[in-house]
């Protein structure tokens, strides 16, 4: 047999498309659509793992909320609602700008693609900025789990905490200390991992925006924009669930 080493570029395309190869076509794919479909499926499978990743957190949350409902209500009420709500608006807004960026890429509008990506980066950064402010408040209020945790610390320092625990609460003070700490542990793990996903997302957005600016994408090849979009929307969905679960327990 002949053992000549065949370069992919010279090999005939499997699907018999005779048009010239797109510069972005990788050697092991036959067509652009095969490449795009592989990429998008890969992204979806990745999101599948992400769903299970956060699923483990949500079941943990559910269990402790069942067990320590009063503590969860108390702790949730201690969180300011307004920054959370603003962040919800900001993040859903960033999902819109992301979707519009993908749409611009699909319709070959390079400038608009870049602009919408930058808008998404800005909104994502605003979200993180507000998150930093919220975390700072938690530190100030001693609501960060660990050695310095004191659920009543803030209330007592401001002179309003003497009759705590509030009416209708059957748990003792120690019990509240212990169980609200679980709420805040979950609060930090959940929002922290969410924020980490956003930071990663913003880094990717920068890269994609740069590539878009360089004219790497067109209506035929824009899978990276599309996949970044899927990731960003997923991060948005996680927040859509986190917001009511963390900020809105028994507000009435």
């Amino acid at each position: 047999m002949s053992n000549g080493y065949a370069h992919a570029e010279g090999a005939p395309s499997m699907h018999g498309h005779d048009h010239a190869h797109h510069p972005a076509l990788q050697h092991h794919f036959s067509t652009m659509s095969q490449q795009r479909e592989a990429g998008v499926l890969g992204m979806w499978v990745f999101l599948l793992t992400e769903v299970l990743f956060f699923g483990g957190l949500f079941i943990t949350y559910t269990l402790y909320r069942m067990w320590y409902y009063e503590a969860f209500a108390l702790a949730s009420k201690s969180i300011e609602i307004v920054p959370g709500l603003i962040n919800t608006v900001v993040l859903i807004g960033s999902s819109l700008t992301m979707a519009l960026s993908v749409r611009s890429a699909q319709t070959n509008q390079r400038k608009a693609t870049v602009n919408w990506l930058i808008a998404t980066i800005i909104l994502g950064s605003v979200f993180l900025g507000i998150k930093v402010y919220e975390y700072a408040l938690k530190f100030e209020h001693h609501h960060v789990p660990g050695a310095t945790f004191d659920f009543f610390g803030h209330a007592e320092a401001s002179g309003e905490g003497h009759e705590a625990p509030a009416e209708g609460v059957t748990m003792g003070r120690d019990q509240i200390q212990r169980t609200t700490q679980i709420f805040f542990s979950l609060y930090f793990v959940m929002t922290g991992l969410h924020a980490l996903h956003m930071i990663v997302g913003i880094v990717i957005l920068f890269i994609i925006a740069w590539m878009a600016h360089k004219g790497r994408f067109d209506s035929e090849y824009h899978a990276p924009v599309e996949m970044t979009g899927l990731y960003w929307h997923f991060v948005d969905i996680v927040w859509i669930f986190l917001f009511p679960l963390l900020y809105l327990v028994e507000r009435h």
């Binding site: 499978v45 990743f53 789990p145 793990v189």
Partner: peptide, 30 residues
């Protein structure tokens, strides 16, 4: 792809518990 992320998040929680003193699985902390 379905199972591994769950053990990953579990390890994250154990890590948070050990490294930062978060209480999630320790009965002494509820």
């Amino acid at each position: 792809v379905l199972g591994t992320p769950v053990v990953a998040i579990t390890i994250v929680m154990v890590f948070a518990e050990r490294a930062f003193g978060f209480g999630i699985f320790d009965p002494q902390r509820g």
